Amino acid sequence: MRHNAHRPAQNHARGRVAAWALGLTLAGFVCAGSVLAGPAGPASAHNSVISTTPAAGSVVTEQPGVFQVTTNDDLLKLDTPGAMRMQISGPADAATPLYYGDGCSTVFGPTLEAKAQLGEPGKYTVAWQVVSTDGHTISGDFAFTWQPAAGQELATGSSIPPDCGGTITGGTTQTDAATPAAPATDTAALGDVLWIGGAVAAVILATVVTLVAVGRRKPPTGPTGTPPEGTPPTE
């Protein structure tokens, strides 16, 4: 009977060990699943245009002076020549459409802006290029009709695309071309391997502990099914 006084405490300790092992096993599986699923990184999406000045397809009767393309998110303001640009050209039905403005453009938050005065009446096209917050170059164009009202001064265009004081080369735009990215490193991959290895080790350890704890719950029996000699009687 003296030995039986310790049995509730032993059973309680074994129960705690089993519960701890079960919890560790579950934690190991959760950890491994999270690592294998991969980190939830930020969504990557190009900026999209929400408005232009002048509005696409509109008829303009007064010199706009300022041309804008506004997107849904901030743009990257880069010093790289040609990374952001805006070119205004027209009229479309002219023998040789001319370019207007000095080719310089500026980024203000989500907006690309350039200044120019228009020439002869007709359809004009604004071609633009910017770098979105995901690091990709996006570009496009929109058109409007210029019908100057009486008294509007007309600018003299140029047959050569303006290059903003010689800082831009060429006159074409690039559509959805990715800017060069930094070489990828193996840091993330190494971290994943270490996490997966740790999770697997935790699961194995928890399983072993659980099996040992469960195995100790049942007292050993002799060949005839009775406790061997020296085993304290149970109530």
Results as ranks from 00 to 15, higher is better:
residue 233 P to Y: 05
residue 228 P to S: 05
residue 48 S to I: 14
residue 83 A to F: 06
residue 119 G to C: 07
residue 8 P to G: 04
residue 188 A to M: 10
residue 66 V to T: 15
residue 25 T to C: 11
residue 20 W to P: 00
residue 23 G to Q: 08
residue 137 T to F: 03
residue 135 G to E: 01
residue 102 D to R: 01
residue 70 T to F: 03
residue 196 I to Q: 09
residue 205 L to Q: 10
residue 221 T to R: 14
residue 225 G to F: 06
residue 224 T to S: 09
residue 52 T to G: 05
residue 78 L to G: 04
residue 224 T to A: 12
residue 130 V to K: 00
residue 118 L to T: 01
residue 132 S to D: 03
residue 68 Q to F: 03
residue 156 T to R: 05
residue 50 I to P: 02
residue 8 P to Y: 01
residue 11 N to F: 10
residue 181 A to I: 06
residue 61 T to F: 09
residue 35 V to R: 03
residue 26 L to E: 14
residue 184 A to F: 04
residue 116 A to F: 02
residue 208 V to A: 14
residue 166 G to F: 05
residue 201 A to W: 10
residue 199 A to K: 01
residue 138 I to L: 08
residue 107 V to N: 05
residue 96 T to I: 12
residue 30 V to C: 04
residue 102 D to S: 07
residue 206 A to E: 00
residue 106 T to P: 02
residue 202 A to G: 10
residue 132 S to N: 02
residue 221 T to C: 05
residue 131 V to C: 03
residue 160 I to P: 02
residue 159 S to R: 06
residue 27 A to C: 05
residue 11 N to W: 09
residue 154 L to D: 03
residue 63 Q to F: 12
residue 210 T to E: 13
residue 225 G to K: 02
residue 200 V to I: 13
residue 180 P to G: 02
residue 56 A to E: 08
residue 117 Q to I: 11
residue 185 T to F: 04
residue 16 R to C: 09
residue 205 L to D: 08
residue 125 T to Q: 12
residue 153 E to T: 15
residue 160 I to G: 03
residue 75 L to K: 00
residue 193 V to C: 06
residue 179 T to P: 00
residue 170 G to A: 05
residue 90 G to T: 04
residue 65 G to S: 04
residue 6 H to A: 15
residue 207 T to S: 15
residue 84 M to W: 09
residue 179 T to K: 08
residue 225 G to Y: 03
residue 62 E to L: 12
residue 38 G to P: 00
residue 117 Q to L: 14
residue 204 I to R: 07
residue 25 T to I: 11
residue 51 S to W: 07
residue 64 P to M: 06
residue 140 G to V: 10
residue 6 H to M: 15
residue 158 S to D: 10
residue 218 K to E: 12
residue 124 Y to G: 02
residue 153 E to F: 14
residue 217 R to H: 11
